[in-house]
């Protein structure tokens, strides 16, 4: 059966490709004005695309700007200076949501001004999975973080390799 597939698929592809070349000649002869030949060309073209597995891909929503993906919004964010203020331990839970969520794991890092990591972790999806367009999440700040000003980065994490992606959002964290 495997052998048959090995020979059969390239054979089908060769026949379709040959048919496509013939229809291209047909379309060229009629200068693209014969609806029949154009329809044949489109049909065989679609077959070649299907056989070669050319991806249709994720829809790119645009008109002017491309719709942003993995757009992180923090509920308690002060949009005037992109900061959050946390009075620990009382304000240790940070909540927010991710719009146009394209990944299934997200992480965060809290850094001092000289880039030393104070805390790192992953965002917890409210419903257990990051698999919807709009996903609510929470994260818990380490209550032992000392008072001061920090930088907080959000990024994607590859679930297989645990490799972190580029920073999606960067905010200031003021711990009181």
């Amino acid at each position: 059966m495997k052998e048959l597939k090995k020979i059969g698929l390239p054979l089908v592809f060769a026949i379709v490709a040959l048919g496509f070349c013939i229809t291209c000649i047909g379309v060229w002869v009629y200068k693209g004005k014969s609806a029949k030949w154009v329809a044949r060309k489109m049909k065989l073209g679609a077959a070649i695309i299907a056989l070669t597995g050319v991806s249709t891909g994720c829809p790119v929503i645009s008109c002017y700007d491309i719709e942003p993906t993995d757009y992180i919004l923090i509920d308690s964010l002060n949009y005037e200076d992109y900061s959050i203020t946390a009075d620990l331990p009382a304000d240790s839970m940070i909540t927010g949501h991710i719009k146009n969520c394209l990944h299934n794991k997200y992480g965060f890092e809290i850094l001092t001004i000289d880039s030393s990591v104070v805390q790192e972790g992953s965002l917890q999806p409210e419903d257990g999975n990051f698999n919807d367009y709009n996903e609510k999440f929470s994260l818990k700040l380490d209550p032992s973080i000392e008072n001061g000003n920090y930088v907080m980065d959000f990024f994607t994490i590859d679930p297989d390799t645990e490799k972190t992606g580029p920073i999606l959002t960067q905010i200031k964290l003021n711990v009181k």
Binding site: K43, A46, T56, G57, P59
Partner: peptide
């Protein structure tokens, strides 16, 4: 017919 051809060749989105 034209739109149907576009769907078949895998146009992913129409606005």
């Amino acid at each position: 017919t034209e739109f149907s051809q576009l769907i078949k060749v895998g146009v992913q989105l129409f606005e």
